[in-house]
Every structure is written in structure tokens, then in C-alpha cells.
């Protein structure tokens, strides 16, 4: 398996990272060396599925009122880069107009 510079740029877009041309050269070398090492996984016969994880076998469920919200020593405004009129403020997305966002939950 090897990863092309183009793929690196696609992945960087997904991860919201900027990779310059010079960096993508070095990165593709590094990543390909690592992926080559990872490829030993492909040579192994593995059972289907695999385990679901460690820790407790089932998600604990809380009852209403059982765990109160962890109090905040400072309000959210104190750590926010830009907070105005009770809102976190960010630059507007490039493609959206003035309407309310339809959900943010695609």
C-alpha cells in the first residue's frame, strides 16, 4: 500500500490541515514508510469482526438527576477566542448565505 501526494492532500482537507507541496513530499515518504510497516497486518489471518473494546462490557446508563452537570469554574466566554452577545462567534462558512443553518447535522 502506498499513499500518493494527492491522497495526502485529500486527507489533509478532511482533517482541516494545510499541507504545502514541500511538506507533502516529505510526508508521503514518512507515511509510506509507516504504512509499509503497517502492511504486515495484511499478511495475518484474522477472525471476522474482532472485539468491541475493553473496559466494561456494557455502557452504564445514568438516571435523571444522578450525575449533576460538572460546574464550570469560569463561563464559556472566558476561554473563547471570540464571544459576543452570549454567542461563540466564528467567521462565516464560505458557501452559506444569511439564513439559519438548516441543521448542521448532515
Amino acid at each position: 500500500m502506498s499513499i500518493s501526494r494527492e491522497e495526502i492532500l485529500q486527507i489533509a482537507t478532511l482533517a482541516r490541515l494545510r499541507v504545502t507541496d514541500a511538506e507533502s513530499e516529505a510526508l508521503s515518504q514518512d507515511l509510506n514508510q509507516i504504512l509499509e510497516y503497517f502492511d504486515m497486518l495484511a499478511s495475518l489471518q484474522v477472525p471476522e469482526g474482532g472485539r468491541l473494546g475493553l473496559g466494561p462490557p456494557r455502557a452504564p446508563e445514568r438516571e435523571p438527576g444522578q450525575i449533576p452537570p460538572d460546574p464550570m469554574a469560569q463561563p464559556p466566554a472566558d476561554s473563547a477566542p471570540d464571544f459576543r452577545e452570549e454567542f461563540f462567534v466564528v467567521p462565516s462558512p464560505p458557501s452559506l448565505g444569511e439564513a439559519d443553518d438548516p441543521g448542521g447535522s448532515p
Partner: peptide, 16 residues
């Protein structure tokens, strides 16, 4: 998700 309001604060998006 929360709510993004694009017409609340000029030049930006307000997030609740």
C-alpha cells in the same frame, strides 16, 4: 448539534 446563526452578528456566524 447546536445552532449556527448566520444573520445575528455582522461579519460572522453566531453559535449557540
Amino acid at each position: 448539534a447546536g445552532k449556527s446563526i448566520h444573520d445575528r452578528i455582522s461579519g460572522g456566524t453566531a453559535v449557540d
